[in-house]
Amino acid sequence: MKERTDAELVTRARSGHAESFGELVRRYQQPAFSIALSVIGRQQDAEDAVQESFMVALRRLEDCRNPDRFAGWFLTIVRNRSRNLIRRESLRRGDPIPASAANTGPSPEKAASLAELRESLQEALKKLSEVQREIVLLHDLEGWKHSEIAERLGMPSGTVRSHLHFARKALRVELSGWRDHVITS
């Protein structure tokens, strides 16, 4: 069956079609997480920002004047919500941990090791500019192509390549000491 376009999904979601909105969530929850993580730098807050952003987007779907460009419109919401969340950092304290954050996988030892690695990665990413973090995560983590990033973030493809080049260069230095087996075991 032919996959529906973003515009079709947005139109149907405006009428309350749950499956269409669910498909938009499936498509953009991970890119949104990458954006939020780029801005906030903490996984838990990034998740909150993504959830909030989807709620805001659903309430304001009529404001998305060009549904073909839903991705760019939505990721802007994610970026803005993430920045707001940083300003209201105190809200994070005392929030219950959502079920999605429940740790059902690795042993406590490996979890600790992964937590340490994550912290180090986030420290390394902090050395980059916000837009560099967004681009490197969308490219390396989500597998988006240069052209997709350019279209969805609303910037020239050459700029995306340039940001990616400098981000990789900086990360090469920051992550050079990390051993591969830490993450592959």
């Binding site: 997480f33 740790n103 994550r118 990665l121």
Partner: peptide, 12 residues
């Protein structure tokens, strides 16, 4: 591979 550790689904 290193950056994928940042994906919450990596260990969940």
């Amino acid at each position: 591979r290193l950056l994928r550790v940042l994906d919450p689904a990596h260990d969940c």
